[in-house]
């Protein structure tokens, strides 16, 4: 995944300013930054939910063109998990999971269900397979949403503040699933406010402010020895003394 000098404006407001980021296969990049700094917009630009004004996003060396008829083919390879889960309320958990594999990837339904049940078991939600999304807690819904993205076997997973809407005890159950995926070698770009989690999961930390990357580096250096004033200030805002 290669993000090359992308810019995004809403009217006069510059949200992303000539931002570049390379993500290697198997790497977990965690993005942090103050509200409105462009982190979520960055993720949305990657799979063309937002159209960039300038620059290029490329996957496997191929540029993602939002106007391409085959955009949906590229999106198959980019999994995305949203803050508000976005499960399909009219379908059961199992139906939620097999819908895209069967309809988009033309996977055999039996096979898709087998895979779905296997993954549900892994996140401890096998017993919920016939429930509807509204019958699940937020943490459970988010775990299902992660599984739904995994069902497409994407090359890269984008996670957009996936714990921001959850109670603290549910945050943990979701983040454990993500940590598991990180250990498994999944390529991920994670936007989060959970710094402890970021420390545990990240191969590389990225701090964004004002639509630009201000600082990036190994998690240890990043948290213990921030070089820029802005990052120091940002990290400091999470501590109370």
């Amino acid at each position: 995944m290669n993000i090359n000098g992308i810019s995004k404006k809403y009217g006069d407001l510059v949200v992303l300013d000539n931002l570049s980021l390379k993500v290697k296969s198997g790497e977990v990049v965690v993005i942090v930054g103050p509200s409105g700094c462009g982190k979520s917009t960055l993720l949305r630009c990657i799979n063309a939910l937002e159209i960039i004004d300038d620059g290029e996003v490329a996957l496997d060396g191929k540029a993602i063109n939002p106007h391409d008829k085959k955009l949906s083919k590229v999106r198959e390879k980019i999994g995305m998990v949203f803050q508000s889960y976005e499960l399909f309320p009219h379908k059961t958990i199992l139906q939620n999971l097999v819908l895209a594999p069967v309809r988009v990837k033309k996977m055999n339904r039996k096979e898709a269900e087998k895979e779905a049940l296997h993954l549900l078991e892994r996140v401890g939600l096998l017993s919920k397979k016939d429930n509807y999304p509204r019958q699940l807690s937020g943490g459970q819904k988010q775990r299902v949403a992660i599984v739904r993205a995994l069902m497409m076997n994407p090359e890269i997973l984008l996670m957009d503040e996936i714990t921001a809407a959850l109670d603290p005890e549910m945050v943990r159950e979701v983040l454990e699933v993500v940590l598991d995926l990180a250990k498994e070698g999944r390529t991920m770009i994670i936007v989060t406010h959970e710094l402890q989690f970021a420390k545990a999961a990240a191969d590389r930390m990225v701090f964004i402010d004002g639509g630009r990357i201000i600082e990036e580096g190994e998690p240890k250096e990043f948290f213990e020895n921030p070089k820029t004033e802005r990052l120091k200030k940002f990290l400091h805002s999470f501590t109370y003394e």
Partner: peptide, 10 residues
């Protein structure tokens, strides 16, 4: 909802 569907490759 449409976004999440399209993010799945629909």
């Amino acid at each position: 909802q449409a976004e999440s569907a399209e993010a799945l490759g629909m």
